[in-house]
Write a protein that binds this DNA or RNA. Structure first.
Lengths: 127, 127
DNA sequence: AGCAATTTAATGCAGATGCATTAAATCCCC
DNA sequence: GGGGATTTAATGCATCTGCATTAAATTGCT
């Protein structure tokens, strides 16, 4: 029932990780940030956008930060809130990953009735 | 992009776990076994059916076995292979969980434009 | 028959996730 | 203004997952 989607997601995960050192969830966060006005969003806004638990998102942001792709900044309007802002590095990483993302989606949507799962073995799609 | 599906899956996960003490992946395995002739399948056949890595499936089966829902049995045709067979307990658990599974799916498909994610907070759907 | 290549399932290990809890800041009602 | 309820983000903890490796059994080629 959820296999098709899981395969696409797994393929995104593998390929993005291999080529750009970014997981699929991480890419999704970068994507939301890229869409945002100034590449800057509050953690909570991200939480509404990405379908991860709050804790998972928190740690994901920590990973992105230590990778230098985003920075966390205090929010002076509401000092509970934290802004997450893309760095230049983050922007370029996202830009690179974006084409891969689209490529994988396209490929999966055309190849799904031809290519086996490539989950158990190491036959990563296009890798 | 994958949020709708992830929400449905998460909801299945939560609800099946809460009500029947069975995860969504575990349910899926039980379901494949239930469909099988004699409620019995080789590990590899399951692997082809459920979209999990081989190792994850192996451990999942171990969990199901310690829960008493399946048993592993040697396969005398090919002594590398392992048969996974539902127990009576496994059958009834699956039967119980099946209605929940259907209920959640139906609910999500009708409520998805009304109900918020219910992921971050403890507002599990229907729980 | 003999032996390398392959297939099958289990396991070590590291990483990601979710739940529950925690700490800080804000809100709101008195 | 004061104090409890609420919101926001981080963290401890347990669990699940996938990759790489391993061990056993089978297959196939000579």
């Amino acid at each position: 029932m959820h296999c098709r989607h899981a395969m696409i997601w797994a393929s995104l995960e593998r390929t993005l990780q291999d080529r750009h050192n970014v997981g699929a969830s991480e890419y999704e966060v970068l994507d939301r940030l890229a869409e945002a006005t100034h590449g800057k969003l509050r953690v909570q806004e991200l939480a509404d956008a990405v379908c991860l638990s709050q804790s998972a998102l928190s740690r994901l942001i920590a990973r992105l930060e230590s990778a230098g792709l985003v920075v966390r900044a205090m929010c002076d309007m509401d000092r509970r809130g934290i802004f997450v802002e893309m760095t230049g590095e983050g922007r370029s990483r996202h830009a690179e990953a974006r084409s891969t993302h689209l490529a994988v989606l396209g490929e999966m949507l055309t190849d799904q009735w031809v290519v086996p799962p490539s989950l158990s073995k190491s036959a990563g799609p296009k890798a």
